[in-house]
Each structure stands twice: as C-alpha cells, then as structure tokens.
Computed example of a mutant assay.
Amino acid sequence: MFNLDEEKAVFQSLLREAVHTGADLSTLIHAQKARLVAAGLPDGEINHLIHDRHRRAAYRPQWAVQETVLHVPLADIDRARALGARRHLANNVWVAPAGADLNRFRRWLR
C-alpha cells in the first residue's frame, strides 16, 4: 500500500534531480505518474507538481549591482513602491535598489 505523502515527496525529489542532471523527464514522469494515480492522487495535482517544479527550476534571479533606473508610469507607482522601488527626489526618477532582483521590476526596465 502506498503512503500518498511519501509518494509525493519521492516524486518531487526525482523531479528536482532530473532537472539538475538534465535527465529525460518524460520517462520519469510517466512511471511516477502511474504510481501516484494508483496511490489515489488526482491527475490535476500531479500536473501541478510537475509544472511547479519546472517553473522554479527555470527562474533565475538577476541581481542589480547598482541602483537601476526604472520607467514607472503614474498608474504603477504604488505597485513599484510595494516591490521595493525608491524615488530619487533630486533626479525625479524611480530606481530599483542595489541588490534587488530586477525580475521583479522587469516591466519598468528599458
């Protein structure tokens, strides 16, 4: 008998290992997916596990080495501020602080 939580943990660790090693995911996914379906895990949740792992593996932060000028329209000021942007009063521009992940500010970079 399968323990559902253990099977999910095994599946996640196998996905993590396959992404790091570049192994063929299709064979791994089909084999593990069959085991998880047999254990009673809904197909939708299995697909969520797969896509979540791929999304996290594909994300790479882009760190700002210095303050980076942002082109923030008036309508987005509150959102930019919430993400950590600062306004330079002397230059009247918005900047992403040094050390910030620029992916968060991608829409305002030029």
Rank of each mutant, 00 (worst) to 15 (best):
L36F: 05
Q12K: 14
I77H: 00
I46P: 04
P61F: 11
L74E: 14
A58L: 10
N92V: 02
T21H: 03
E45M: 02
G84P: 12
I46C: 01
V72G: 03
T27Y: 10
N103H: 11
R104E: 13
A34H: 06
L41S: 07
R86N: 07
Q12C: 06
L109Y: 05
V72C: 02
H30D: 15
A9V: 03
E17G: 01
L25C: 05
M1H: 10
N92C: 00
D78F: 10
Q32N: 13
V93Q: 12
H71V: 08
G84I: 00
H54Q: 15
I50S: 01
T27I: 14
V19A: 08
L102T: 04
W94V: 02
R16T: 12
N3K: 05
P97F: 02
A96E: 00
A34K: 05
R16N: 12
G84S: 01
A64S: 11
V95C: 09
I50E: 03
A38S: 11
V10M: 06
T21W: 01
I50L: 09
H71M: 04
E7F: 05
P73M: 00
R60E: 15
R106D: 12
P61H: 10
S26P: 05
R110M: 10
W94S: 09
I46S: 01
D5V: 10
F105L: 07
M1A: 11
H51G: 01
G40N: 03
H48K: 13
A96W: 02
Y59I: 09
E67G: 13
R35F: 06
R87Q: 09
L83V: 00
A57V: 08
M1D: 10
D5N: 13
R81G: 04
A90N: 08
L15T: 02
L36V: 01
A57D: 13
R81S: 12
M1G: 11
N92A: 13
S26R: 14
L15A: 06
G40L: 03
H48A: 15
D5F: 10
